[in-house]
Write a protein that binds this DNA or RNA. Structure first.
Length: 261
DNA sequence: ATGGTCGCGTAGCGA
């Protein structure tokens, strides 16, 4: 079995206490991280490698930045989302990893927030989603197991937000955003979340402000999107809600899929 | 009540 996690850590250096504890206890085979807010010269490679992980990053100073940590070697590492050579924001990295039964491709995605909407930031978000759609379409042609993991900054449905009416004007929940997300799914991807026995609400983010965590005012924006070959082999899906507690938590919690790869 | 909290980096922006 292979466990693949996605977690927006909101700065790798500030989060190292929680990250090292998590890598020891949860010990995912693959961890896709977002918002590392570091470049290679400030990323804590040594500490993470000492825990048995190979590390690949697409870094940026102060903002954004994504990484893939993998217990197994990574091949065909690609940094940056294709489709716009002028885009300098570090929001995409992918790699191919061998499981016991088959190899799989995994991506760590930090989709733009897009607020305020409308405006240039929202335009950038939608354009970025168009590029992701094009790239996902290319990846699906391989007909291989593919897991597109990350902070999508998309609330798919009303059930995924504590106050749907209050969020209608937000870039994360606007009809055009959700329609674009559905377009991407429409290529033939499925959400790993659909594997859950969906009783209670299942949020992945709670704002630091206004006691959002204490009041369970959360949203579900961290997703695992699966190619058919990955969806056929998922055996478990978990949201590590408990990670929102503790010392200096990220505002996001890890989301983890287990695959028979 | 136009607030509140983080992180980066040391002012003010991004989320």
């Amino acid at each position: 079995m292979i466990t693949i996690a996605t977690w927006n850590v909101n700065s790798i250096r500030t989060r190292m206490h929680a990250v090292t504890k998590w890598l020891k206890e949860t010990a995912p085979d693959v961890a896709c991280l977002q918002e590392i807010k570091s470049t290679a010269d400030t990323f804590p490679f040594m500490e993470i490698e000492a825990l048995g992980y190979n590390v690949e990053i697409c870094g940026q100073k102060s903002y954004n930045g994504v990484a893939i940590l993998s217990k197994r070697p990574m091949e065909d590492v690609r940094k940056g989302l294709p489709g716009d050579e002028s885009d300098e924001q570090a929001r995409y990295i992918e790699a191919v990893i061998s499981g016991d039964k088959r190899s799989f491709r995994v991506a760590s995605i930090y989709l733009p927030n897009g607020n305020p909407a409308p405006g240039p930031k929202y335009h950038y978000k939608l354009a970025w989603m168009d590029r992701l759609k094009l790239h996902a379409k290319e990846l699906l042609k391989f007909e291989e197991a593919t897991v597109l993991a990350g902070d999508y900054n998309v609330i798919p449905e009303a059930k995924d937000v504590y106050d749907p009416k209050g969020w209608l004007g937000e870039a994360l929940f606007m009809p055009e955003t959700r329609a674009k997300f559905r377009e991407i799914l429409g290529l033939g991807l499925t959400e790993a979340f659909e594997q859950m026995d969906g009783r209670a609400e299942q949020y992945t983010f709670w704002d630091y402000q206004r006691g959002a965590w204490q009041n369970n005012e959360g949203i579900r924006i961290d997703h695992l999107l699966l190619s058919p070959q990955a969806a056929d082999n998922i055996v478990e899906f978990k949201i590590e809600r408990i990670m929102r507690d503790g010392i200096k938590p990220s505002d996001h919690v890890p989301v983890i899929g287990t695959f028979d790869f």
